[in-house]
Simulated scan of single mutants.
Amino acid sequence: MDTAQETAQEGGEFGLNMILEAGILSFLGKMLLAIIVFVVLLMIAKAVSASVRNRVVENTVVDDDEYSKKVGDLIGTLTYYTGVVLSMFIGLQIVGFDIGILLGGISVGLGFAFKEVLGNLLAGVLILTTKEFKLGDNIEIQGSNNYFGTIEEITMRYTVLRGLDLRRTVMPNLELITNPVMTFTSEDLLKLNTTVIVGYGTDLDRASQIALEAVNNLEVVKNKDENKTMITNLKDSDFGTNGVEIKVIFHVEPGGDVKGPGGPISQANKAIYNAFIENGINIPYPHTSITVDKNDKNLLGSAMYVINKSRNS
């Protein structure tokens, strides 16, 4: 009886071991097959992405070769990583994982963890494919902090601006998509303006004419017949504190540092200043007028205290 029980027990253990060994061998076989398939698909993805990149570069109709290469690199990289993801999912499917549940968990995790990264990548795709901006463009980003500079580099995640102080600013691509961007080099002509203040009592028609002629005499200024001036702070008797503002509006061709030290705005300011000096037009400085009743000793003393304090500071 004991011998029969021992024989049955040994038979059961042997059968269980056979099942376990068969399961392990089957799992290892699936793992090996999945690895082989994954490696083969990666090689295919790499070859396809290289072919796509070359075709994009060859068929992109733009004058800028650097821009064509960047677009080609972008499309090639996206193609490769798409192939990597598909290869991974196929390999996991071969092993026996439930891809539906896996995709749900991955999508939720990536959505929270890589929200900004994915947003910048998508923005980079839009910038490089729509060609709203390109290398060498002068732009001003009007967000919470304004940035002005020349585009030196555009990648999938960020754009590099070179400012007037020659410092590089690395901007996430999402900033260029979600904020207003003013361009200074993509148009045929730019309409710029500068403002000068003249003192009260100045002949505004004469001052406006002198300022306009000074700007129109610059070589950089175009469309001279369409340039004009306007008074900006004479609305509802709201005069300026120190004088009257005259805004000069003029046109220039795009290119170069528009707001830089040698740019057209700087040249216009210098020309207007010299013209006003030559023609005796006063450019006022900030000042405050105090009127005191000479019979009010307390008020007179307070006024003298303020004057003496301002002189000593």
Rank of each mutant, 00 (worst) to 15 (best):
V52R: 00
V52F: 06
V52K: 07
N54T: 11
N54L: 10
N54I: 12
N54H: 05
N54Q: 08
N54R: 14
V56M: 10
V57Q: 03
V57F: 06
V57K: 08
E58Y: 08
N59Q: 11
T60C: 09
D63G: 13
D63L: 13
D64W: 02
D64S: 07
D64E: 13
D65Q: 11
E66F: 13
Y67D: 10
S68N: 05
S68F: 07
S68M: 09
K69S: 10
V71N: 02
G72S: 13
D73L: 14
L74E: 04
L74C: 11
L74D: 08
I75M: 04
I75L: 11
I75T: 04
G76M: 00
G76N: 08
G76A: 01
T77D: 10
L78T: 06
L78A: 05
L78Y: 07
L78N: 03
T79M: 14
Y80F: 15
T82H: 01
T82K: 07
G83Q: 03
V85Y: 11
S87I: 13
S87L: 08
S87D: 04
M88K: 09
M88H: 05
M88V: 14
G91K: 05
G91S: 09
L92Q: 05
L92C: 06
Q93M: 12
V95S: 03
V95N: 01
G96Y: 04
G100E: 15
I101P: 02
L103C: 12
G104H: 07
G105V: 04
I106M: 14
S107V: 14
L110E: 03
L110S: 06
G111D: 09
G111S: 07
F112P: 01
A113M: 13
F114Y: 06
K115D: 08
K115S: 12
K115R: 15
N120W: 01
N120S: 09
L121H: 07
A123N: 03
A123P: 00
A123C: 05
G124L: 02
V125K: 04
L126S: 07
L126W: 15
L126P: 03
L126A: 14
I127P: 00
I127L: 15
T130K: 10
K131G: 05
K131M: 09
E132A: 13
K134L: 02
K134Y: 09
L135F: 11
G136D: 11
G136V: 13
N138M: 12
N138Y: 14
I139G: 00
Q142L: 14
N145P: 01
N145H: 10
N146S: 14
Y147Q: 12
F148T: 13
I154K: 06
I154Y: 09
I154E: 00
T155L: 07
T155V: 05
R157G: 06
R157D: 02
Y158V: 14
R162A: 07
G163I: 03
L164D: 08
L164K: 09
D165E: 02
L166K: 14
R167F: 03
R168C: 05
V170P: 00
M171A: 08
P172R: 05
